[in-house]
Design a protein around this nucleic acid. Sequence first.
DNA 1: CCGGTGTGGATTTTT
DNA 2: TCCACACCGG
Length: 764
Amino acid sequence: MKDYLDGLNHAQKDAVINYQGPSLVIAGAGSGKTRVLTFRIAHLLKNGVKPYEILSLTFTNKAAKEMCERISLIVGSQTTKYLWMGTFHSIFARILRKEAEHIGFVSNFTIYDTADSKNLLKSVIKEMALDPNVYKISGVLSRISSAKNDLITAEMYQSNNQLIAHDRQSKMPELSRIYKLYVTRCRNNNAMDFDDLLLNTNVLFRNKPEVLEKYQEQFKYILVDEYQDTNFSQFLIIKKLSAKHRNICVVGDDAQSIYSFRGAKIENILNFRNDYPEYQLFKLEQNYRSTQNIVNAANSVISKNRKQIKKDVFSENDEGELIRVFELYTDAEEGYLVANKINDLRMSEHYHFRDFAILYRTNAQSRIFEESLRKKNIPYRIYGGLSFYQRKEIKDILAYCRLVVNKNDNEAIKRIINYPKRGIGDASVDKIEEISLQAGVSMWHFISNIDKNPELATSGRLMKPLLVFREMISSLTLRQDEYNAADMLIQIARESGMLKEMHSDQTPEGISRYENIQELMNAVQEFVSTFESTEEVPTLANYLQNVALLTDQDTEKGENDVVTLMTIHASKGLEFKNVFLVGMEEDLFPGELSTHSASDLEEERRLFYVAVTRAEKNLVLSYAKSRYKWGTLSARKPSRFIQEIDAKYLDWQAGESQNNRTFNQSFKGRTTIEDEKFAEQQNVTKQMNQTGDLQIPESQNSSFKTSAKLNLKAGDIVEHQKFGIGQVLQINESGSNSVAIVNFQNGGSKQLLLKFANLRVIKK
DNA sequence: CCGGTGTGGATTTTT
DNA sequence: TCCACACCGG
């Protein structure tokens, strides 16, 4: 008996040691899925399989990294280093770079993220002189994306009568041509979008059987995590790669398939038995995470779905508390309740803030909870929103890097040719693009030859800045292999003028931008340092290779003790001692979505299941009987899914304080709570208390947007959207701009350019 | 380069 | 209703 297997239960162990042939591991929520996956790989390695013969695919970098670390603990990091472990996109990007010439790309191709794709698509639609109100960027892009995920190339699209008919019916007959031109432009730019990484891998394997064979031979064992979330394109890659050895292990839970809107096909996991008839089935059914009540309640909901693989998830933990359902009158009341409950539980059970999560269906729902948490001085962190790599300043500086590495990247050049401003205006950029497109060359090619064709410079004024720009980029390009990525980044930041631009901007936004650049530099420095013991050189090109595939979660900082707010989608795979599932009204969640087919309903039910199974100890469901949406207050009903939970697991409670509180249902304003405590808060003299904290009453009519006309004076208390509460120390008038120096509660004093500041006045 | 005005869109989003 | 954006005029 090998000791490293001892900690596994029977089912887990079975799934680990039977590693030959196709395996389907159905892993119920909280059943130790990652454990099985890591131990299975470790077990393969212990049984003499070479690390480079193992291909292990995940959906997030975080999952890959975590798994790698856990395997290292068993077999050592020298071995795991050679595993092919990563996200679908990063692994196949790696293969595509290696084999780029087989499909007509250059190895240094740029990976376009969604924003890049949108920009490109925008200019395609403009180029084709189509009405952008008819051809909406996001709609068109999602059509193209789903075509790609179904492996329908532009050529196939064109000759697919059904699709063409559909487009004609939806009044977008040009979609097929847009798709084609978009693909052409990507190719011209030597760029691939996310979907291309998968599509082109399929194309590569289809067109070059000898290449496919090479990888089929190499990857003797293939493992796929979260198999229920794979799309058709991913499915086919796996199928092709595993065709030779047929040692494929897929792990997942059909009950947690919640990404169909992104092309995920639950059928992939449901039909595994048909694709690999000789498969072995392993079911992990013991849930180690949650109390019996939570597990049983979750089961009672998901059992109503038709499309599913039968399993019997159970818990041997304590029976636990009943699930509490709170019916409240308004969202403000809901926020108040959640904040109160967090404090109560924290006091009575000694939980940390990080033991709490507030989960909701859509990001927009977070606001009311932010407010209520802030009022009670409960620290929190919102996940979602703009990711680090999506920030303008980061995208800008990376665009410089991209251009240095890939001269065909027109999207990059357009982004930074006049940033910081150097006198090459929009009209000139359009002209340059037009001429170079007609000439069939990249914009960079045109610019770098501008002195040979001076007559092409649209105006004499343009020549000089173009030459300066060319000189800067050329000079950086020459250096790119001499210096490492970190040094290059600094040089780019300096020589482009970006650093200067950032530095001179002393608004809080400007300061934060500067800090972001700094943070990027740290990340690059870290990347460089991982190369220390290797012979490879951490060039800028190397760094750029996967940067588009990084997301915010990968740069996660050390975890603070804070309450977590996120969407249910984002919570997948995580667990919390106490979960508040809020906004559980029918129209938000769900049943009455605009499109409600039977399978949509089932997916919503799975989403609900995912949410419920995040909780370990306490689960609170809440909904408001009335809620503002788009400015209108209307009556709400509880989500049908609450009723679908077997009633014996529920503890219904009306608004907690009906005894000592009266509810104002006249709905004037959003606050309808009128209890002593709250009234007290309203009357609190708005000043700093001993600890320097502020007790802030909800101000009724002030909003964040009228900052330009605030007329602040020293001594005023203000609230900034990002920086929180502070007191104005001083106002400086400089020309037409007023600058306030504000002392913020947390984060010291900052200068605010009032024009830009998202301020509201708390007290004059 | 700005500020004012008009318009359209308002699920979820691991890559 | 509330936000981001495109557009226009000074």
